[in-house]
Amino acid sequence: MTNIISISGLGKAYASGHVALHSVDLDIREGEIFALLGPNGAGKTTLISIICGIVSPTSGQVLVNGRDIIREYRHTRTDIGLVPQELYTDAFEPVISTVRFTRGLFGKPRDDAYIEKLLRDLSLWDKRDAKILELSGGMKRRVMIAKALSHEPRVLFLDEPTAGVDVELRKDMWAMVRDLRDTGVTIILTTHYIEEAEEMADRVGVINNGRLMLVDEKEALMRKLGTKTLTLHLDQPLGAIPDALSRWDLTLGGGGSDLNYRFDAKTDESGVPTLIAALGQAGIGYHDISTRESSLEDIFVGLVHSQDGGQEAKA
């Protein structure tokens, strides 16, 4: 798969002195859904704003489809659509006019058939003549997506696309993003909803304090860093972990009624059979067993906390 975006050594320091990005290197593959995860203020929006031309980089280079975003901005910007986090709209404009306006702004000839299809796909056709101020928040967000797609971009940036939208609309958006990917559009979404990345992304990048900490396939990431937790629901509560079980990574939960065993899911030797045997030898009975695989959220929190902890230690 070819790279549609190549970022190398990208840095950004604002006039205030705040360094938002520290030499970021990242490749985005054509046709993938890439989720950029990070807490608030991590540098996600700065990164995509630079690629889209809204913020000037301090150092480094970004290529979109092999072209430099500064020297060949006409080509690169034509390839990109952006849905910003905030609902920035011209409140008094009708939906169809504002979508046509964006298409024209990006140098594309008027195409009523395409705009109609786009508005129908986004369930906006019935509202085409409504002024934007008359629409609900969810509808306004759809308008923003319609505007971003109006010039038929190859890459779509979604900056926190489901921030503040209800569960139903969020699921609709996820379905829409998948449909878009199926048409060949590369999608980069920033989010701090781990569920969103877990649901949709092919690959995940984690950014914190302006540094890209990790980029990997979502499945591989969960395999590599994922852990499982085995929970045994005991017949009799325990006051403490018996010495005979000290070689396993065990904790008590549920007031001593649950015995939790956290183990590395990627190893062949999980230690589960020997633990079960040891419980029998110790005379500890249980009536149920459950397992839980760690989520992307667990991985993300672990990574962010380990970096924050490292920085605090350095300080």
Binding site: C52, G53, H75, P84, D90, F106, G107
Partner: peptide, 14 residues
């Protein structure tokens, strides 16, 4: 003021 300047800055306009 409305924030729609993002569209202008990200468009292929000199």
């Amino acid at each position: 003021w409305t924030g729609t300047i993002y569209e202008l800055l990200s468009a292929p306009l000199s």
